[in-house]
Amino acid sequence: MQQEAVLHPASIIAELKKNKVTHVVWLPDSETNFMYQQLTEDPEVDLVPVCREGETMAIAAGLWVGGKRPVCLIQNTGIFESGDSIRGLGLDVNNPLVMLVGYRGWDRHGVARDSAARFIEHILHAWGITYYLVETDDDANRISMAMEEADRTSKPVAVLVGTEFGA
């Protein structure tokens, strides 16, 4: 039986607009794939597709220096690939970058068997990157909290998306 969707793309996109996000730099994943259609059709947010996740932080850094407000949208596996970009163009340069991260393998009610889930929070802790968990529409306002924290601290902040989007 299919689970009822508890997190809708519209909730995420509304948060992005509320925070005047101009660009979503992303590589699709199973947790966030349902946003694609809405993002491509939305004239207020420019979608920047990449070939590998480490590009996202660098493109976002360029957008930020140029006066825009980007976010990255990738999977936790992509965070593992992106270490040097997060270090060099996020942490080292005080970039207030919010990274929306699909939390592959996350299971609130069981044991996380996927190493992508087991390692991600440890990696974020190691870098000193704080994070918020979003699982339902009711959690979506944590994106605003992450935006506020990134601006206040001038540091990257992550938002872990712990469920697959409903259509």
Binding site: H23, G54, A58, A61, G62, L63, G66, K68, D84, S85
Partner: peptide, 22 residues
């Protein structure tokens, strides 16, 4: 000028972001 250090290999990506922003 934007002398880039760190994030090896990412000059083209950083430049893309700047070009889109400006």
């Amino acid at each position: 000028d934007f002398p880039m250090g760190g994030a090896m290999g990412k000059a083209s990506s950083l430049g893309l972001g700047l070009a889109l922003a400006q």
